[in-house]
Amino acid sequence: MLNADPFAIRELLGPDAAPGRRAITGEHGIVLPAFTDHHVHLHLLEEDSLASRGIAGVVDLGGDPVALARRSREGFPHVSHAGAFLTAPGGYPVGRPWAPDAISREISDPSIHPGVPGGVATAVDEQAACGASVIKVSLNAATGPVLDPETLGAVVACARERGLPVVAHVEGEGMTRRALDAELDVLSHTPFSEWLDGASIARAVALGQRWISTLAIHDGVDRERAEINLATFARAGGRVLYGTDLGNGDRPVGIQVPELAALDAAGVRGPALIDALADPWPMDAATHAVATFVPGDPPAALDDVPAWLGGATVVPADEIARDEH
């Protein structure tokens, strides 16, 4: 039998956590909401093992929109996507070895009239027609040109007319401010290339901006900046989403314990860590009838939660018998 106090479990892992049993195998463990990695690139990874290693859903933040549109809607992971990066002519990630031409659209005209070659509406409409749930823009001034404020504003307006949020890759001096001025919905990485002051972080929180973590892809001063920026943002009430930029670097697919440990160290702990994993963004609610299952006893303390979550797997919800007391 599982050694678990349901009240202690909820204190460590949040109100939706409960002891349970897999009906087919009889295995006892802890049941949690389904987990999403909010930043992946499916064309760079082998996705078949995601579910067995705890990830039910992913958000592809830069891929071939036609290939993504052709994906089956059945099975796992459940995929939401942005389609292609919208970027300035010659901007990131154009020309990168990992970035085939199909994953970028170069915006050369701020026009919001459909069909204009290189126009904003043309690019946004293409991603929407291919089933995008979010539009992604590139604001990487560290390595090339970026969308000017007028064009960026046109992308935001055009996307919102179509009911789509806008997420940005922000890198380089002044790019977080540009994202804030444009009132972008989400940052695809915690800001790592510049220190943010309290006023900037307060603006991000007031806008309701979400930040996708991706802390563990960095090292050195970039890692330090990202962790401190995220810790300040989270303490101020900012919404944090678990994301790993999976496909970037040689890492096994599935739950990334180093990312969880970095979030924990930045103060996103226990129930807040589960919230970052289980947030259905960009959907309003989870669309898959599965749960996260971690076999065996629950973690003994908050410090144990990141490593313990490394044992998570995805299980059909109707296979779980919850042991509520």
Score class of each variant (00 low, 15 high):
246 L>W: 14
243 G>M: 06
222 D>W: 04
236 A>C: 08
270 G>R: 00
266 A>P: 14
259 E>T: 00
314 V>L: 04
218 H>L: 07
70 R>N: 13
128 A>K: 11
156 V>Y: 02
32 L>M: 08
40 V>W: 11
44 L>F: 14
58 V>K: 10
200 S>W: 10
103 I>V: 13
46 E>M: 10
287 T>S: 13
124 V>C: 07
258 P>Q: 05
224 E>R: 12
120 V>C: 09
235 R>D: 15
162 R>M: 09
162 R>V: 06
128 A>W: 12
9 I>T: 12
181 D>R: 04
126 E>Q: 12
271 P>L: 01
130 C>L: 04
181 D>L: 02
268 V>Y: 03
129 A>M: 12
105 R>Y: 13
97 P>Y: 09
184 L>Q: 03
58 V>M: 08
215 L>A: 03
33 P>V: 08
167 V>Y: 00
207 L>E: 09
316 P>K: 07
155 V>H: 02
137 V>F: 11
293 F>C: 10
59 V>D: 03
209 Q>P: 11
117 P>V: 07
298 P>E: 07
191 P>I: 11
103 I>T: 02
229 N>T: 14
101 D>G: 10
208 G>W: 13
74 E>G: 03
113 H>I: 13
155 V>M: 01
190 T>S: 15
214 T>L: 00
170 V>L: 14
101 D>A: 14
87 T>G: 03
245 D>N: 14
106 E>G: 04
75 G>V: 11
58 V>A: 08
69 A>Q: 13
186 V>R: 01
136 K>C: 09
304 D>Q: 06
183 E>M: 05
312 A>T: 07
65 P>N: 10
273 L>T: 04
65 P>I: 02
319 E>T: 13
226 A>L: 09
309 L>P: 05
148 D>V: 08
64 D>T: 05
47 E>F: 07
150 E>T: 15
233 F>Q: 10
201 I>S: 09
290 V>D: 04
23 A>F: 07
100 P>L: 03
91 G>D: 12
155 V>G: 00
105 R>P: 09
76 F>Y: 11
37 D>I: 10
322 R>Y: 11
